[in-house]
Simulated assay, not measured.
Amino acid sequence: MASFMSISSLSSSSSPLFRVPLPTRLSSPSHNRFCNFRVRCSYAEPSVSGDARSDTIDVVADVKAERIVVLGGNGFVGSAICKAAVSKGIEAVSLNRSGRPTFPGSWVDQVTWVPGDVFYANWDEVLVGATAVVSTLGGIGSEEQMQRINGEANIVAVNAAKDFGVPKFILISVHDYNLPSFLLSNGYFTGKRKAESEVLSKYPNSGVVFRPGFIYGRRRVDGFELPLDLIGEPLERILGATQNITRPLSSLPASDLLLAPPVSVDDLALAVLNAVRDDDFFGVFTIEQIKEAAANVKV
């Protein structure tokens, strides 16, 4: 995302023809949200022949260098987001309890791993210069634990990001599966919804909430890899092919436990990158909208 801040003085009566050799790839400084670069431009008056050269002018542009902070970046979803960010030239910083993961991957060396707990984090170390915070925090446990990790931890992170002037916050939440209200009253869902409200309140024009259902991919658990894609990928295709038949059933309570299409963890990561880069991308996004956002990045 580049914006030209100033162009050296041009005569109002002239009609310059610019030939600006902009670089194809810009490096991202570690602790600066913007990087300056200078290019030389040549222009010619209408009365001057095309092969004649006139004085050059300087064009100075401030180019936004994306720097995202991923909370829970070494988990299933968080690591996919970090990996996707690195592949797109976006600087990624991960804040998580265990720090650098033990699994292999060349992209791992390109992520800044910061060990820490959201409730006790030294935000100066991670949020300065960030252009977006992405939270993948969430978990299942007792009612108190789910309220704390799904709700309170995310709320703390939202407020920290706001205090440090981070312009965008992206929350990975959860689809409600069309469940009846009494089933949505447990700590997992109520915690997530409280976190959503905080994001949309503190970031009304730039906060993003993704509500995926079942997320599939290669998930590492205690050193083992669970091939969730063997279930999720064919199921996604089947539900996609039969959606015209199953759509009338979507109004039935809890129907989405069976009918909500799974989402690839890679697609969710790409949707996050779309949200990071698009200033007009904000609000709550459903499963289908997540896939559409991912498709935009793939193109």
Rank of each mutant, 00 (worst) to 15 (best):
A2M: 10
F4A: 14
S6K: 10
S9G: 11
S11F: 12
S13R: 11
S30W: 10
N36A: 10
R38Y: 09
S47N: 12
A52Q: 12
D55L: 12
V59L: 14
V60Y: 07
A61L: 15
V63A: 15
V69C: 11
V70P: 08
N74G: 04
C82N: 12
K83P: 00
A84C: 12
S87M: 04
K88D: 10
P104K: 11
T112S: 11
V114D: 06
N122W: 01
V126F: 05
G129D: 02
T131D: 03
T131K: 03
A132R: 03
V134T: 05
G141A: 08
S142N: 07
Q145A: 15
Q147T: 08
R148F: 00
E152M: 02
V156F: 02
N159R: 15
H175P: 05
P180R: 11
L183W: 09
G191A: 07
S197W: 01
L200A: 02
P204G: 08
N205R: 13
V208H: 03
V208F: 02
V209A: 08
F210I: 06
P212T: 05
F214T: 11
I231Q: 10
G232W: 00
T242H: 01
Q243C: 12
T246C: 03
P248V: 06
S251I: 13
S255E: 07
P262C: 10
V263E: 04
V265A: 09
D266Q: 13
L268R: 05
V276Y: 02
D279M: 04
V284Y: 01
I287M: 03
E292Q: 13
A293P: 09
A293M: 03
A295H: 09
A295F: 03
V297S: 09
V299Q: 13
